[in-house]
């Protein structure tokens, strides 16, 4: 464990806590894409298949359970919770995320480290996570103004993978471990997808203005 990876995991955890806070505090999920939440639930379920077979550390197991549990709870909340589901922007959240799932799975069948079930699902989860934010970014552009908690949620979610990239660089130089190039490339694509969001987020913070993404 290094400081970059710890910062990444904590930033990821903070993004989830901010999202939970927004939904429970405002009893609303307006501005949140259910499709992105479903994609993330799929990412964690596909990536942590080894949850009960390979024990790495208490920290590792606890965080995996938190990520799986929170993503499923958020999807349940947005689909089933009486009050919350009423505020879901169904008409704006129209990204065809099934194509992202299908594309990622086909790519994982072609490009992976080993042709085993676990490795293919791992690669699938890495590719899917890189594009999982797309429905959310599209929804933000369509919904005009973005409430603070939603903006902070997306910001932390984007920042966590940037910390992971620093972690891979750190591990490359200190442990002579090139690691997995699949993670490298997908992580760079994932972080790049947030580039314009980060720009508008920073400008809104600098000008102390409301976050507005150009349609």
């Amino acid at each position: 464990m290094n400081i970059f990876r710890l910062a990444g995991d904590l930033t990821h955890l903070i993004s989830i806590l901010v999202l939970l806070l927004k939904i429970y505090a405002t009893k609303s999920c307006s501005g949140i894409s259910l499709k992105t939440q479903e994609l993330y639930a799929l990412v964690f379920l596909a990536r942590y298949l080894d949850l009960f077979t390979d024990f790495v550390s208490v920290y590792n197991t606890v965080m995996k359970l938190v990520f799986i549990g929170s993503s499923l709870a958020i999807v349940w909340c947005m689909r089933m919770h009486r009050i919350v589901k009423r505020s879901y922007n169904r008409e704006l959240d129209t990204f065809r995320h099934y194509f992202l799932v299908a594309g990622s799975f086909v790519l994982a069948l072609v490009v992976h480290e080993k042709f085993t079930l676990q490795e293919i699902f791992w690669a699938f989860s890495i590719y899917l996570e890189a594009v999982a934010i797309l429905p959310q970014l599209v929804l933000l552009q369509r919904s005009g103004n973005v409430d603070n908690l939603t903006g902070q949620y997306v910001f932390f979610l984007g920042a966590y993978r940037a910390f992971y990239i620093l972690n891979w660089i750190y591990r490359y130089f200190t442990e002579q471990r090139f690691g997995r190039w699949i993670s490298w490339i997908s992580g760079l694509v994932q972080t790049a997808l947030y580039a314009d969001f980060f720009y508008y987020y920073f400008m809104s913070w600098k000008n102390n203005a409301k976050l507005q993404l150009p349609a």
Binding site: M1, R5, D9, H12, D50, D54, V56, S57, N60, M63, K64, F67, E113, K114, E119, Y164, N167, R171, R177, F178, G179, R180, S183
Partner: peptide, 10 residues
């Protein structure tokens, strides 16, 4: 092998 290199990552 590189497979388990980053197994400890989330």
């Amino acid at each position: 092998s590189s497979i388990n290199d980053l197994k400890d990552e989330l």
